[in-house]
């Protein structure tokens, strides 16, 4: 009998470091001895680049476009430490329907029972930005992923995207959809950044899984076409990713988040806007003001 497969989806606003984080989690899980597949769900098709020396791989949809039948081995490529890399792919910008593309690619793998045949421990979906349409919600629907994590910085736009994702999870939570594992707080260097993310998870009744500081090691590794876990395994940053991977491996219970309404979110952001302004002008507003 095959072992228990855990499927995880990682969402987040574009450019927030989602693919970097996902690839490092995959690398860390793999180093820890798990069999991992990373499934990029972004028409840009660059999710798995740093697992494969910075190279692009043929995508499921590109292959499907050329011929009607696609064999799994034609679109699954081994990367760092034997991680299976897959890119869903999608149409050229401005044509067709990328959302439907994600559905097609994920369903193809499901139909062909690829995950079972490859005897995997983890499938990690790296999903493009916001949940803009039904297609991008596929990994959290139809019993595909069990846990969803969202990568967010303290940037308001990233938090808005996370809140949208929470709405998607909330919507599908009653029909067997994936639940939220928590927020992976990325690029957290300033103290206020941590406060903002902490406050957001607090009001939406979720949790921060790990705080990841911005680090030049990540940039250096990516310039070599590698994850930090591969390029600088002993670095402090690699340890952060390994700790994150361990937490995800040990994570069992996800929850339904409570997303903020549009008005609530605006008010919440406005409140933080004022605080940041006060901070810049030297006013003390944190716990220190009581001193």
């Amino acid at each position: 009998m095959s072992k228990k497969l855990t499927q995880i989806a990682i969402y987040g606003k574009g450019g927030i470091g989602k693919s970097t984080t996902t690839s490092n989690i995959s690398a860390a899980l793999s180093v820890a001895g798990y069999k991992v597949m990373q499934f990029g769900c972004d028409p840009k098709s660059d999710s798995t680049n740093t697992l494969r020396g910075g190279t692009y791989i043929p995508t499921v949809l590109d292959t499907l476009r050329e011929k009607n039948v696609v064999k799994p081995e034609e679109v699954i490529f081994e990367g760092f430490n034997g991680i299976y890399c897959v890119e869903a792919g999608g149409p050229a910008p401005g044509v067709g329907c990328a959302g439907r593309g994600i559905i097609t690619a994920v369903q193809l793998f499901k139909q062909k029972k690829v995950f079972e045949e490859y005897d995997l421990d983890y499938v990690i979906y790296d999903v493009l930005g916001d949940v803009v349409c039904g297609g991008f919600a596929v990994p959290i629907r139809e019993g595909i992923a069990e846990h969803v994590f969202t990568v967010s910085s303290a940037d308001f736009m990233a938090i808005f995207a996370a809140n949208n994702l929470f709405k998607g999870i909330h919507k599908y939570s009653n029909s067997g959809g994936a639940l939220l594992g928590g927020v992976i707080a990325n690029s957290i260097n300033e103290p206020y950044a941590k406060d903002i993310v902490d406050d957001f998870v607090d009001v939406t009744k979720t949790q921060v899984v790990e705080y990841i500081p911005r680090s030049v090691t990540v940039t250096q590794s990516e310039l070599q076409g590698k994850t930090t876990v591969e390029a600088a395994p002993d670095s402090k940053q690699a340890q952060v990713y390994k700790k994150l991977a361990e937490k995800i491996a040990n994570h069992t219970e996800s929850k339904v988040p409570e997303p903020l309404g549009i008005e609530e979110l605006r008010n919440w952001a406005a409140k933080w806007g004022e605080t940041l302004l006060a901070l810049q002008s030297g006013e003390v507003r944190s716990a220190a003001e009581k001193i």
């Binding site: 044509v95 329907c97 593309g101």
Partner: peptide, 10 residues
Amino acid sequence: SEKEVVFGGE
């Protein structure tokens, strides 16, 4: 068909 839905039908 699905192919055109994903990649466009032009």
